[in-house]
Design a binder for these strands. Structure first.
Lengths: 192, 192, 192, 192
DNA sequence: ACATACGGGACCTCCCGTTGCT
DNA sequence: AGCAACGGGAGGTCCCGTATGT
């Protein structure tokens, strides 16, 4: 039954290009050429147009980042260490792409006006998902529920900003520094 | 001779629209219509095309943010308090714009590939300028030069990320939280 | 499925206007307005841009001229008479168009720099095709192969120049004179 | 008093570029950049716009060609030999320019519609001037006045066409062949 | 004589979406 | 599912001309 590998490839290509150049700078034509996907299928799979593809791409990127976070949490005993690891992984991915692949959500999130409801909702949901995952881990590590949510927001914000600065400065330093700082901060708030 | 108010208005309009929707989502046509500037003068004032206008807009936005930082530093006795104030001011501006006006640089910074040298250089310079201002203040407050630079990077990254999250979630909470957290962190590192 | 009459009409319009005003003086806008062809289809049918349309138009004009030559050769017993007839037909067409429709290739050929490979190749091929047709006829009439080629080149050059002068002077005299002269010259070289 | 060398340089640049690429393909901007002439002077010297500059350029090109013809007539005892020499000189100039510099008038002449009165008049005058020079020489060599005019027209037409073909085919052969043929033809009509 | 600022508009390219045929 | 023709319109660039001030 194979569930349309074409649709899948389109989302992958879109996720990659939207992340690197942004939503508006990427045309359908570029998408189908880069992904070697058939022209005629685009509107078959995404009747909602490029916006619908954007939502799918954001969701995929968000899921990938969620997976990275989950993996970091699973691989390390404490949340502070996991956050530091997350920053390290993000830094490596960024550097490996020639400082092109930053956050898979942030670029579209900033291009998106509140008018484009679906797209902004997808971005918002992405950030909330990451926060929720971290908040759960922090709560499990002993933080009060409310404080866990606050700390999670601080962590996601800081990592996002670090990714942004790192990409702009073509240096992994911001990510490293923020990773260290967050680890210290969190360690002071949650018991090992 | 009139010193070209047209050029000025074009940069203002561009700074506003690039910040809200991004570089590629904003067309020359929209720019001249919104700014009520004459079509034909665009190429005259910006022979380097939209990219040159983008650079000018980024520089103007960066300068405005620099002024905000400088004002906060001037108005408060300690750097931690100034940073908290910066976050508050940014939060107010964001909320006042209906959560549209985030960072004046970040949107373009993320849309920009390394291929667009001038634009990415302008974004990088903007971030570096803010970091330098904060680093100088932190150094003046007693931090070692190297650590001052690191802390400044952490601060800018965190505030940037908080702006991003705040805009996406249509809530000032991330800015408030990050402001508090940064104030605490900095207070622990620099003497009052 | 309709076999794209639009594309055909575009080529026709282009052939007509390029011939009269030249390639660069004819805009896409003028082309679609004159030909009443849809704007949006232009890029579809000619992804290579105006140059590709130019090539198609040149080829069509060249084919038309080839047909004229072939008809003249078929309708007259000797090549000299056919050449004279060709000149007469060309003169009539020129005069009938108010001295606007000269050679369908020459205008573009002269505007074309060697940098525009495809366009100059199309023009060159057009001239070569006409020469080849005449050379074959002259060879069949008894001229040695090499001399036939030389005479063909002389004929095409002279007719081209006559068309140019006739158009510029708004008089058919150059074509008539050249036709007579060529007939005399050729008659002296090939047996009746 | 120096009679404006700027104006002169503008005409020179225009003559060169119009000859190579045509009138419409050459912009004012290109003209002032190539000629390193001041922008602000363009409309001072040519209030009639680009068309007026075109007329001046055509006249200059026409005069240069007239000089070539006159020189050839002066340097050779008979008109046939002079015509052959003209073709040789033209062929050399064409080849030396990488087959870019064809006739200084033909390109503009073909781009020009009868609506552009001044420009077409200049082109017509150019051709007529060359014909008149040749006709005078042929008459002096013994041809009847009427026949001299006809032969001159044939010569100019043939040379023009040969230049056109030579430029298009990137070969001097058409000019050589036409030169020979014209010499033979003329020799048969005028006494030595 | 020259320069700078300015202005409206036209340049070609290409986008995104639809339609009807395989 | 996929395709290719199509269609309107907007994309950024740059043109040509004028106005105003040296």
């Amino acid at each position: 039954m194979q569930e349309s590998t074409t649709r899948d490839r389109m989302i992958d290509t879109a996720a990659r290009l939207f992340r690197r150049r942004g939503f508006h700078a990427t045309s359908w034509r570029t998408l189908v050429e880069e992904g070697e996907t058939p022209w005629g299928s685009a509107h078959h799979h995404f009747p909602g147009g490029k916006e619908q593809l954007g939502v799918a791409a954001i969701e995929r990127g968000a899921a990938a980042m969620s997976a990275t976070i989950a993996a970091a949490l699973a691989a390390h005993r404490t949340v502070p260490e996991a956050v530091r690891a997350w920053c390290r992984v993000a830094a490596e991915a960024l550097a490996a792409s020639g400082f092109r692949d930053g956050c898979p959500v942030a670029t579209v999130a900033l291009e998106t006006t509140p008018e484009s409801k679906r797209l902004s909702a997808a971005c918002q949901a992405a950030f909330e998902g990451w926060c929720a995952a971290l908040a759960a881990a922090l709560h499990a590590a002993g933080a009060k529920r409310k404080r866990a949510g606050e700390l999670a927001t601080i962590v996601v914000a800081s990592v996002e900003g670090a990714l942004l600065l790192a990409r702009a400065s073509r240096s992994t330093a911001p990510l490293t520094l923020v990773g260290e700082q967050l680890a210290t901060t969190l360690a002071a708030e949650v018991a090992s």
